[in-house]
Design a protein around this nucleic acid. Structure first.
Length: 274
DNA sequence: AAACGCGCCTGCGGGC
DNA sequence: TGCCCGCAGGCGCGTT
């Protein structure tokens, strides 16, 4: 569920509170995450250390500490990070609690346990398996038209699958892929290699535009997304097609149709998107 | 060898 | 009312 704008929103909401804070303790309630959580490693690397930076790579949050260690957190599908100024009762499915010296707490909550938490030395960042094969950041200068064109032109896969492929471009999930393709006027099932350069660049610019706009709205809250303070995002009211089957296309009023692609819902205006 | 499909996991909403 | 099924979907891995 959290795609790039949601993860970035969480990062921005944590930043002012956690920077330079020192970690006092860690409580692990559940180690059975996507990959088993190594509690002793977590404690050994992080307790007593000061948080120096919070970065994001794709959908991963990277917490950098004063001992050159990196805490990697992925929120999976419905994972949440909750920041609390002082002691609070943990909500159900709170698997890990980070206690800081100023009394603040960071709660990692993930009912479906699709998320993951691991720690590794900063020097080993290059060897960190989950980050190995990630493509470019869509909001960086590396997401150029020549880059996307190269990836589109060599495959017959549907365009929607390609822009959701994290080895091409990171952080674009189902919601923003649907929105970006609507904005570009491209049908999600078009074979990527049939797009011409102009269409490919329309897709690229549409991805950037929709991610930026969603970020400005604090992300999309369909059901459970919240920033670190428990506040929802507001981009759901601006969604043009996602989840709007049967509703009028905001441009031409044709009813939005839903089609399944590999078990995932795609929403499309068949008049605007070709 | 690219590309598809499945399994992981729980909550919730719709239908009967 | 209550139960069951389908859907949500990122990611890694196995299969074709």
């Amino acid at each position: 569920m959290p795609e790039l704008p949601e993860v970035e929103t969480i990062r921005l909401s944590l930043l002012p509170h956690l920077l330079d804070q020192r970690l006092k303790d860690i409580q692990v309630n559940e180690t059975r995450l996507r990959q088993p959580l190594k509690e002793d490693e977590l404690r050994r690397w992080l307790i007593g250390h000061q948080l120096k930076e919070i970065q994001r790579r794709g959908r991963y949050l990277l917490f950098l500490w004063d001992n050159q260690s990196v805490l990697l957190i992925h929120l999976g599908m419905g994972g949440r990070l909750g920041y609390y100024q002082q002691r609070v009762d943990a909500e159900p499915h709170t698997h890990v609690i980070f206690y800081f010296e100023d009394g603040a707490e960071l709660h990692f909550r993930d009912p479906r346990r699709f998320g993951s938490i691991c720690v590794f030395p900063m020097g080993g960042l290059d060897q960190c398996e989950p980050l190995q094969h990630l493509g470019v950041e869509p909001l960086s200068r590396f997401f150029r038209s020549s880059y996307l064109w190269r990836h589109l032109s060599r495959t017959k896969r549907p365009i929607k699958n390609v822009i959701m492929d994290n080895s091409v471009v990171v952080g674009v999930g189902n919601i923003y892929a649907n929105e970006a393709l609507f904005g570009a006027g491209i049908h999600p099932q078009r074979a990527a290699c049939t797009l011409n350069r102009d269409e490919a660049d329309r897709v690229r610019r549409s991805i950037v535009a929709v991610l930026r706009k969603a970020l400005r709205s604090g992300g999309t809250t369909l059901r459970d997304f919240r920033n670190a303070h428990g506040e929802p995002g507001f981009f759901q009211v601006e969604l043009a097609v996602y989840g709007r089957e049967g509703q009028a296309c905001p441009v031409c009023f044709t009813p939005i149709s839903r089609l399944m692609m590999g078990g995932r819902s795609s929403f499309v205006c068949t008049k605007c998107q070709r």
